[in-house]
Amino acid sequence: MTTSLVILAFMAIIVGPLFGYPLENGYIHRFLGPVLVSGHLHIPHLSEGVSLSLMMLSIFMGIAGIALAYIYYMVKTDLPAKTAGLFKPLYKLSYNKWYFDEIYKSVIIDPIITISKFMWKGIDVNVIDFIVNSFGKVAMFLGSMFRTIQTGRIQTYIFTMIVGVIVMLTVFYSF
């Protein structure tokens, strides 16, 4: 953990000069300039005062943060607990990462999984596949109905045939 932080810290130092001071005069701008700026394009430049005060502000914030952390965790180690007691709800909120994971889980993940489960069990298995299997069931049912007339008894077949012939003859000759 520390090693990676050290590496990142060094990189942060290198990045600064890359952008240069005043802003937009660094190496990166000269390098990318020909690609990004076509000449006609007007790009708003920050005035030197603004960029200077922005830099000052961020340096001040950084130092203030470091100082505060130093006081809290090195000098007066009872302060963190006191502050936590003072701003209890806020402390809890920040301790639990603003409940971001929980909100994310209940607003996005759980609904998606619930809907997906419904799509699988509800629609895929019980509607679409039910229709598919119904075709098979209907065919089986019809087959099971028709098989009852296939008795294999010659007498029945001949009898049915004769009845059929008589019916057909009556139908043909009566019209």
């Binding site: 998606i112 999984i113 997906s116 799509m119 699988w120």
Partner: peptide, 10 residues
């Protein structure tokens, strides 16, 4: 979308 969602809960 449907295929992906159903895949999710397999």
């Amino acid at each position: 979308v449907y295929g992906a969602m159903v895949a999710l809960v397999q």
